[in-house]
Design a binder for these strands. Sequence first.
RNA 1: GGGCGGGUAGCUCAGCGGGAGAGCACCGGCCUUACAAGCCGGGGGUCACAGGUUCAAAUCCUGUUCCGCCUACCA
Length: 889
Amino acid sequence: MGKDVLPKIYDPGEIEEKWYSFWQDKKLFRAGEEKTSKEYSIVIPPPNVTGSLHMGHALNNTLQDILIRYHRMNGYNTLWMPGMDHAGIATQNVVERQLAQEGLKREDLGREKFIERVWTWKEHSGGVIINQLKRLGCSCDWDRERFTMDEGLSRAVREVFVRLYEDGLVYKGDYIVNWCPRCHTALSDLEVEHEDASGSLWHIRYPIEGSDEKVVVATTRPETMLGDTAVAVNPNDPRYSHLIGKHAILPLVGRRLRVIGDPIVAMDFGTGALKVTPSHDLTDFELSVRHNLDRVTVMDFHGRINERGIHFKGMDRYECRKAIVKELEEKGFLLKIEPYTVGLGRCYRCKDVVEPLISKQWFVKTGPLAAEALKAVETGATRIVPEHWTKTYYDWMNNIRDWCISRQIWWGHRVPAWTCEDCGTIVVSRQDPVECTSCKGSRLVQETDVLDTWFSSALWPFSTMGWPDRSELLKTFYPTSCLVTGFDILFFWVARMMMMGIKFMDDVPFKDVYIHALVRDESGKKMSKSLGNVIDPLEVMDRLGTDAFRFTLAALAAQGRDIRLSESRIEGYRNFMNKIWNAARFALPYLDSGEGLPAIDELESPSLSEQWILSRLNATIREVREGIETFRFNDAAQALYQFTWHEFCDWYIEQTKIPLSGEDSVAATRSAAVLRHVLDSLMRLLHPFIPFITEEVASKIPSNGSTVINGPFPTVDAALDNPEAERKMGTLMGLISAVRNIRAEMNLSPAKQLPVIVLPSSTEEQSVVEEDRRMVVALGRISDLTLSNPGEAVEVPRMSATAVTGEMRIFVPLEGIVDPDAEIARLEKELAKIEKELAGVQKKLSNESFLAKANPDAVQKQKDRQAELSAKAAGLGEGLAKMRTLKGL
RNA sequence: GGGCGGGUAGCUCAGCGGGAGAGCACCGGCCUUACAAGCCGGGGGUCACAGGUUCAAAUCCUGUUCCGCCUACCA
């Protein structure tokens, strides 16, 4: 037919490559800078420059690409802003590990050389993930790709820091922070992962000064006692209240410890007495503020005991614990050890146990920023989907603590603050200052700390668009339409973008936040390299194809539940891709006469199946649009799967073989026109989910104007809704299925053509069957179809199988072909099912309360069901009775 | 401790006030000229448990229980 013969099996490899380059070469992902009538924008959650594509990225970016492609096809000026995050600690660790292999430490290079080295690494090996995103089919505007450390974004970081400082929202101070002794830096509260570990509760006797009394404290960290400066009890505790104001003597050390009363102490925990170590415990630090206690720091930044630790000096924290416990025991201070589960905080990067330590750090005062961010969601300026996450968001915003933003590493944005060595003034400045603002001295020393990686990510929605300049891009695309992200970074990132966006842009950074699930393995475990349960997206894409993979993710992306991904699921959708491919293989040759086909709204007297498929297509368009627009990707994917496979392929295509190969050229042309329309529409509907195969198939449709990526996306045409055609087609499908069922249940070969007698209950049923007689005969494999008039007495061979569909009776004469026992068994089974259902319906209809109170539509529905079920039961009952008579039962 | 999500077919999960569904797996039959990665047919579930609301509950409410996650200054 002059067409390339398509292979039987869809082979994604070359096709994916071909189309991605095509789209890129033609600049089809490019957003227009100027405002048009409608804009749609998303900023990508910037992957770490160290990262490689994992399942979380794959899901996240597939969903974004679906939204982006959908809106682009719908004519929006669409921007998907891509880029990467410098990932301070993570990246520094990568390069430090490389250095270690050469036997070097970063200190050996010095700060400048080390940073140079990181940049070199970034240029050569960083950012492989970008190519992996392209492999996934992401239609980002790559010409605008940004990096959190590039010049523009660094300028934005400085501007924000300085303005926050000027507004009193950034401050520096000595506070207790989470310290990672391995990474050697402070961490924010969020960067600490909590876990339970088995530990002990040591009960230690502290003598009371000048008396025989003692107080017993319980602790999980005996080594910190070296830094104790008080003992706290609850003022309402009768056991201890009389001790408040007295002093205890710290064992081993001999320091006098004031006994203080504070309601924070839980009377029912441990011994009810708490040793207070302000320098090494957050609660104790706060007690020290309230009670004006001394702070004795006994541990250094490596987690070793310092010179304040008497003879334990130089020991590692855990070594010291053993030594202390041993000595306490020897000297009789240790009264009891009980097993206890302790909460451990670990560094989210290196997993080392975090140590609370006091140090000088920079903080963002979050209170005022959080208040605005909270309000933005309450007023609906930003909507969080699924909605239940808003509560989590509120809780966090309401309990927010100041954000420690300084990190003692080298890779990142250096804090733009300088200290004057002459007068001690701190200068915070947009440009590197040359002289002290106070004494005009020139001996200025810049802070060595860098900013938390999340500080720059917090600015992402506007820093990527050129801020602090009032760029065209910002005017056109800010606020962004939607943010798509996992809940694991709701606080890290989303909350902070909200705060910064509102503060610096006077508007929320995004209108919708769609929070998707986590991808887990088959057994529900989080995928991780250490568990060895990761499915590598790239390997999957290589083997099963990108489209199959993307469709799987979309189909599983139900709101509010994690995704358990399994290979077999992806294989299932790989088969779906093949199904699409083969449907196209079938259809394409008939579409050869492209321009000769009538438009869909000019069809002359379309057949029932044509009206039906157009009505179903219309319903599918509605479901897909609705699904994407409400972030119910799984619903949209299911609707597409169902329609494509079980309506278009199973019924429409099967049926269309008759007119397409028939001698009626008008019917053949019309049929081809509908086939073409549905195939083309389907490719468009599917395109956001599976961009490659759809583009390939659509390109094979003769004289198809442009590529699918440009749209348009199919629109609902209410004129095509046709409930009547759907009902009639249902009748025919029921008839065909009934015949097939009899054949199969009677163990007859599928090739066996059977004679069928149909007794319609109405003239409508009669004419429906009559008009599509050829379809019924072909799909039901019927040798001879006898169609009676309604109510007419037709002679049915005594030895026939019986079925009922709608209210139409179907007989298949089986004289001499089959054992009547089999038919009796089949009918009994079927009848039992119907009668059970009927009983349920009748019970409802005989319930007066139901008739009186239920919605009239609901009542009518039950009545209709009753009629249908009764007819069916009657028909099957008669068939059964006849069969039994035959058998002489 | 507080909060959130979940317990529906063998497995993975939709459905969330009126006929228990899908995919995979399973059973039976088919190389029917787009597709065996396919076609046709079929079996399979007191929707965790207990109460309640309602004419009607897998679906709403309360409690119980089990699982998962987030969060937290009981050392």
